[in-house]
Design a protein around this nucleic acid. Structure first.
Length: 413
DNA sequence: TCTGGGGTCCTAGGACCC
DNA sequence: TCTGGGGTCCTAGGACCC
């Protein structure tokens, strides 16, 4: 048996952790730049306010209903997440951190009463950390996802799908509510007369594979109780790292765009080095204008390095040169991002055959970056940063008008 | 004035190899 | 009447997830 532990309205719960006065109020958390609603307390869900709703459209209603509004603070949520994960890992040999607020747990074989066992876990996370969670138990990941959705609707906060109730559950679950079946696939299946998960498992598996490829087949098998998706313990290194932002102001000049993108690439590069990776490929994109408002567009360009890079100085230079190719004066730029990819392990660098001293130059840069990272690790994220970013008026800084006060040492980066 | 950000996996088709 | 057989690698695009 395995279990899925999912934090309830995670971002809202994090805000409530440090601002107890919010516990008795309806709360929403906003995305970057105070753009959309990305987390809602139970009261707000009950009001019918959907996930992803643009904030500006609903600002008035929220105020009228007395809903507390928080700008998102991912740095803080990540720290809370790490505490939850650490605690969860104490209860199981095999655990997969699936997202910032979810983990799959393989249950000890000895657990004779799985539901009782996960109830214990749930109570401890709630009382020791203060984050409410729901836990679903089943034989496969796909079924445990479903069990967790049911757990969220039950006062106990835990639920199990077994051979006894599985058929009933599947018959009462819309096909689009199954993990792995998205909107497009659900619509297509509806056209074939499949509306419930029960309809889906009844179809011939050859037909399912032809129709939905192997992922669809795995979903079907998992719904029948046959595990296809293993729990992957530990965290795999990422295959790409992207940092993009919608900016607080429209940026016109090349200099402003460069600074904003420098900020992005420095964040990406820090992540890269933390994971001991170096990148062969990089791409940048810019968006100008507003998507739902007249003239707008998207431009992108990429580059491959002769050898893998991981230093701020190198990567900033590459970003500037790419921007030089795509930037056009006269546009108002609203958003931009940097993606690093094609990673290799930075600890085992392949030397170039025809190298002209590049290896030594790069080693020096790497030592420099490591020193900067160490100092920042010690004295805080902002102890050392590129001088170009040392400007008073950061025009690109996103709006965060509802940021909670700094508490408990969280850096509101 | 105005709508987030960050990922993964799979497939088809083209190009190429022996 | 009618031209082999078996592969790999890469990319773009689609779909999905949180």
């Amino acid at each position: 048996m395995l279990a899925l532990c999912d934090c309830d309205n995670f971002f809202v719960s994090c805000e409530r952790l440090y601002r107890p006065e919010l516990r008795s109020r309806p709360v929403v958390v906003l995305s970057n730049n105070d753009g959309c609603i990305v987390s809602r307390s139970a009261e707000v869900k009950a009001m019918g306010i959907p996930m992803g709703q643009p904030y500006f459209q609903i600002q008035g209603l929220l105020r009228k209903k007395g809903v507390a509004v928080c700008s998102g603070n991912l740095v803080m949520y990540k720290e809370v997440s790490m505490k939850v994960m650490k605690l969860l890992s104490r209860f199981t040999g095999g655990m997969e951190e699936y997202s910032i607020d979810e983990a799959f747990l393989s249950l000890p074989v000895a657990a004779e009463d799985p539901l009782g066992y996960v109830s214990g876990i749930r109570a401890k996370v709630e009382s020791w950390i203060g984050i409410p969670v729901s836990i679903g138990v089943a034989a496969t990941k796909t079924l445990s996802k479903l069990a967790t959705e049911m757990a969220k609707k039950d006062a106990s906060g835990v639920m199990e799908i077994t051979g006894r109730n599985a058929r009933d559950v599947l018959d009462n679950t819309g096909i689009g509510d199954i993990w792995g079946i998205g909107r497009k696939t659900a619509e297509a299946l509806n056209r074939d007369g499949i509306y419930s998960a029960g309809h889906f498992v009844d179809r011939d598996s050859v037909w399912v594979k032809r129709r939905l490829t192997v992922r669809g087949l795995m979903t079907q098998l998992e719904l029948k109780g046959q595990p296809c998706l293993p729990i992957v313990a530990g965290t795999a290194p990422p295959k790409s790292i992207q940092v993009s932002r919608t900016w607080g102001n429209v940026l016109e000049s090349f200099e402003d765009v460069c600074l904003a993108m420098t900020d992005n690439v420095v964040k990406a590069a820090r992540q890269l080095r933390q994971d001991n990776l170096a990148a062969r490929g990089m791409s940048v994109f810019l968006r100008h204008g507003y998507r739902h408002h007249g003239e707008h567009g998207y431009i992108e360009n990429d580059v491959y390095f002769d050898s893998p890079a991981q230093c701020d100085i190198e990567l900033i230079g590459a970003v500037k040169s790419l921007l030089g190719k795509i930037y056009r004066p006269g546009h108002g730029y609203t958003q931009g991002g940097v993606t690093l990819r094609d990673f290799s392990d930075a600890r085992f660098r392949q030397r170039e055959l025809f190298d002209e001293g590049g290896y030594e130059r790069r080693s020096k840069l790497e030592r420099f970056s490591r020193a900067v990272d160490e100092i920042n690790g010690h004295f805080g994220e902002r102890a050392i940063f590129p001088a170009s970013l040392a400007v008073k008026d950061k025009k690109w800084r996103p709006n965060r008008k509802h940021l909670s006060e700094k508490r408990g040492g969280f850096v509101n980066g």
